[in-house]
Design a protein around this nucleic acid. Sequence first.
DNA 1: TGTTGTGAATCTCTTCACAGCT
DNA 2: AGCTGTGAAGAGATTCACAACA
Lengths: 217, 217
Amino acid sequence: MQQRVAEQTIGRLSLYRRLLERLLDENKRRVFSHEIAEITGFTAAQVRRDLMGPGPSGNSRHGYDVGELIQAIDDYLDHPGGQRVAVIGIGNLGRALVAFFSGRRPNLSVVAGFDSDPQRVNREINGCRIYPMESLSEVVVDQNISVAMIAVPAANAQSVAKLCVEAGVSGLLNFAPVHLRAPASVYVSDVDLAMSLEKVAFFARQKGNNGKPSSHS
Amino acid sequence: MQQRVAEQTIGRLSLYRRLLERLLDENKRRVFSHEIAEITGFTAAQVRRDLMGPGPSGNSRHGYDVGELIQAIDDYLDHPGGQRVAVIGIGNLGRALVAFFSGRRPNLSVVAGFDSDPQRVNREINGCRIYPMESLSEVVVDQNISVAMIAVPAANAQSVAKLCVEAGVSGLLNFAPVHLRAPASVYVSDVDLAMSLEKVAFFARQKGNNGKPSSHS
DNA sequence: TGTTGTGAATCTCTTCACAGCT
DNA sequence: AGCTGTGAAGAGATTCACAACA
């Protein structure tokens, strides 16, 4: 167990890592905090502060070694044995999730999908097998799945979540437009698309026309 | 008229409103802050604080009138003339977005989709017409679209965003796994699925005493 | 010189606590 | 009695600013 972890720092570390991997692909070997900040849209101080968790590896002269920094973030964020993920609900969104995550990160692999519609089950999408909803508990246990993405209609989300938790899942990423209840031993994150859109619409209106013409530094 | 707007308050107001509409459907006429808090997972004090923006309408005896409260939030969040939204990129995710938002909220309607693949254009999904990418500027101006949801591959996201902004869009909801740059007069929100999943995986690991080797079958 | 790592200051958001109302 | 609305306190996150260093 590590010390107090700032919620949002973890998210940003994930973003930094993805950027760093891109930089490595482009054969960039070293990077400064202000470069990471520039591309990700945060501040240099923020980046350095976040990197205190994974453990400092910076060098005053050349900044950070990209490869070493990726390794440090890996060690900090990833579970040594990897984690298995399931997608519940294989509608448009569920399919998008399976496709999006397939083969993206070996340490965090989407290994199963579930749907209650018989027409959608017993096939594979991007190498991920789709099972009937009835076999959820069994498959979750067998495959040692610890995280579930919930992409079912709002009316079914809570009962599906319950099934997942009872089967041993300890993290839920919920896309249904309801707040999920779960025991304190389970981490729940609600990604509410309707809310996100309405928020953008509100601030777009503020920014867009009658707002003050901003004087950005 | 409105003072400093707390970013996250706007998001929660959107959630409260959706809940209130559900309550109204269930013929619940009055509600207390602690009930809203219970269902949405926030605290009662938080709810009351958030509602100071839309303007207080609570009554000590019976709490809030559900209908009045919805109206107050509508007045606070919505643009009087409504706002039009476009979805850029009609892959799995884009289709899911169009389907999810169609007919959901009259004041915030998804009126157009765009894709660069000729096979995907010139048809309708849930009553939303899909146009070729070339006509983006024209359609955005004609239909007075002020918000765009970007669901194209990472490599194309920034250039698509530029097109949108130049055509007059002032809010972007970005699903591509990159940080979008935009002028200060445009509000940008990045919904990063990979980041969200990695964050859940991290905290799932911390929460669940998930280090136990599975009781092998 | 220019950068990292970090205590301290600042800014933002949430919770407390209670006056006032019904 | 029980609730709302809100000033004030508290917690949390971000930014500042600078010592240490190459």
